[in-house]
Design a protein around this nucleic acid. Structure first.
Lengths: 398, 398
DNA sequence: CGGTTTAGTTTGCCGGATGAATTTATCCCG
DNA sequence: CGGGATAAATTCATCCGGCAAACTAAACCG
């Protein structure tokens, strides 16, 4: 009789893992709370006994993941509660990004504060991966050293790239606009910085930052218009990664299958990418988005028509996404965030027209609010999430 | 200080729920196993102690969810193992379906055996919901009574409908090809059969049956070509439901945004639905699929061109799905299952051309293998899943 | 200053997973 | 044909961790 292979053991409940799991529940409860909770409130909100929560919180405080704030003086009888908040400057997640026009680093702690940040603007089209990663490492290395010298534990690093990245194993498959293909990014950066980074698609990490900025557990489709068009699906506050981390490639949706000899001539990126919009607006390919915005403000008819055409393609593509994954909100980031006022109506109209559930659950189109370089923020949050997901395991190894 | 609302308490680990959870792990391990496992094998595969598994299995046997098979005589030293298998004929899930051309019931037990089945073929287009649901209840009632008289516990019922159905609350929003809109199906059937059914989209339930037929935990996009075109996304063997159960509406993907005055004129259903194919093939709208298949076998050029055109639209739409949700396999069911040999090459070619990850993870296109009326099977499985997900809870209430 | 109220801690209890020891049931070999 | 080897299943003492109740702490109130 053949021995069956061990299945994923994560589903079975063991008492040893019970405490670890509840430690994570407690930590996430404290970090995600819109305002500081006391031990008693935490116990009530998670449904645990006060005694249990007290033990967990003590553990978290000792590990410097949580801090006690000064007791609030309320005008109420009873012993005052001790508010709990995520610790500041004790653990950092490091987000990195290499994109077509810039590269940079951002370090964030559990409280969400930015501990360090460096961005260098430069046109990296055609620059080889080796040189660029060297440059990134030169940026990141001092940041890591500085944090460690200040007593900050580095939870991990995550790198955002504008291309197709394997979720688990990490190699970059292809980044068309950088001209990279089959690059072992994890290996290269591990050697340079001493830490193996997570690597992920830029839009997926930007969407993570966006989900974080909208507390609660929002569900939306995120569109990141950079030079290309990326995207991501967020469900209940979680990035939907797909099997390999290759999900959300909204730019490759074909909205006009019969336009050219190749079906890909009708893809969203071909119709609404930055280059396509600039060309249709009669601007030189070297122009930047600001030129297009200026033309729009001046009511230039070619620019207006170009953006309208792009917005139609975008709306149609997003309607397909909504029909397939049943999301009720669309968030426009990057280029489309800047063009938001010029594309909103057309996108909303196409969603209303095409999404089958629109009559029962109207779709919302909103601009991104995660700030500048959201993928760097998302990367830092991704790095921190290793602590939040299983703090006990993380503490054992740090 | 405001008391925070209690969060979802399912994430915290309690010892009381530990046993319940492991009971489910054990039951699913036995039911999902490709061949009967012994207690010892189950313990090894789930990572639980043998003593623990023994206790759980005893409980499952006493509850008549699991049975012991005769010990196998192996050519090996040691006490022979007692193989465990799902019990037969002790619990049934009941799947029901109302579609354009038929309605029916199928009852399945934990072993996957069909305990009862009735199908009535009839054109239900335009028939009102009231009359049709009466007719369905007349079919289902005797099945339920017969099962109960035979000592079979009915785990629940699930109804498949060719339309948009709310996952939790259950009202049918719209079923275009039946001409139904905003029907309280759950209320009507509860009154008629005494059991509140789950209600779900036909394609989603058919995909569930398909996932069950392909053991392991497959990930694929399922296309159900009936009169309309439905679809579903399966990830790791689980239906991806979306927020409301409105996911997978592949028929509403627009592949030709500039074809007609309305963007929806370029939807997959408009281009590759049964009516569109018949029309393009020069067949009367009253013709059935068999006529199209005959014409294809006779190398009729109009039929060949019609199917080629539909296949191109289908391939383009499925490429968009693959790019967005990162699935590696496409399963063609319903009409497209019957047309499989005529559409496979075109669909596969479009996927290879358009899916960005195709060079690293080639896509597979395969025909459905869940048999006839897969949505009825899927409904029965959905009803049974209430037992499998939390057997302890189910036993408490039955 | 004693009573009230709420936060947090201590303590004994209890359920359930666990590993080791034991029992059961077979095969194998002399 | 009987004793040793081997593997499955069960029994049992142990331990871990959550839990309820009792208790202490720290405020407000009259």
């Amino acid at each position: 009789m053949p021995t069956p292979e061990p299945r994923d053991p994560s589903r079975v409940a063991r008492q040893a893992q019970m405490r670890d799991q509840n430690l994570g529940v407690a930590l996430r409860g404290i970090v995600d709370a819109p305002e500081p909770l006391s031990r008693a409130q935490l116990a009530a909100s998670e449904g645990l006994a006060r005694a249990t929560v007290s033990g967990l919180v003590d553990h978290l405080i000792e590990a410097r993941l949580v801090r006690e704030l000064d007791p609030t003086q309320t005008q109420r009888a009873g012993r005052p509660a001790v508010p709990l908040a995520p610790a500041r400057g004790t653990v950092a997640g490091i987000g990195m990004e290499v994109n077509v026009d810039y590269l940079g680093v951002r370090a964030i702690d559990l409280a969400g504060d930015v501990l360090a940040e460096h961005v260098e603007l430069d046109d990296l089209r055609g620059a080889g991966p080796g040189a660029v990663l060297d440059r990134l490492a030169a940026l990141v290395g001092p940041v890591i050293d500085g944090l460690r010298d200040g007593g900050v534990r580095v939870a991990g690093t995550a790198l955002a790239l504008p291309g197709l990245v394997d979720r688990v194993t990490g190699p970059l498959r292809v980044a068309p606009n950088l001209g990279w293909r089959d690059v072992d990014v994890v290996g290269a950066l591990s050697a340079l910085t001493g830490l193996p980074p997570r690597v992920a698609n830029e839009a997926n990490l930007a969407a993570r930052a966006e989900a974080h900025a909208r507390r609660g557990s929002p569900s939306f489709a995120y569109v990141s218009g950079e030079v290309g068009i990326g995207g991501a699906i967020v469900l209940d506050g979680e990035i939907f990664p797909g099997r390999h981390g290759w999900s959300g490639e909204i730019g490759h949706i074909v909205v006009d299958a019969f336009r050219g000899p190749r079906a890909s001539d009708g893809s969203l990126e071909a119709l609404a990418g930055q280059d396509a919009m600039l060309r249709a607006a009669g601007l030189p390919p070297t122009a930047r988005l600001d030129a297009l915005l200026d033309a729009l403000r001046a009511d230039d008819p070619r620019a207006t028509a170009a953006v309208a055409q792009a917005a139609r393609a975008l709306g149609v593509a997003l309607a397909s996404v909504a029909n397939v994954v049943d999301v009720g909100e669309v968030v426009l980031g990057g280029t489309f965030g800047q063009l938001f006022d010029h594309v909103h109506d057309e996108v909303a109209a196409r969603l209303d027209e095409l999404v089958i559930f629109a009559p029962w659950s109207p779709l919302v189109v909103s601009p991104a609010r995660a700030g500048v370089y959201p993928a760097m923020t998302g990367g830092a949050l991704a790095a921190l999430s290793t602590v939040l997901v299983d703090p006990a395991e993380w503490l054992r190894t740090h």
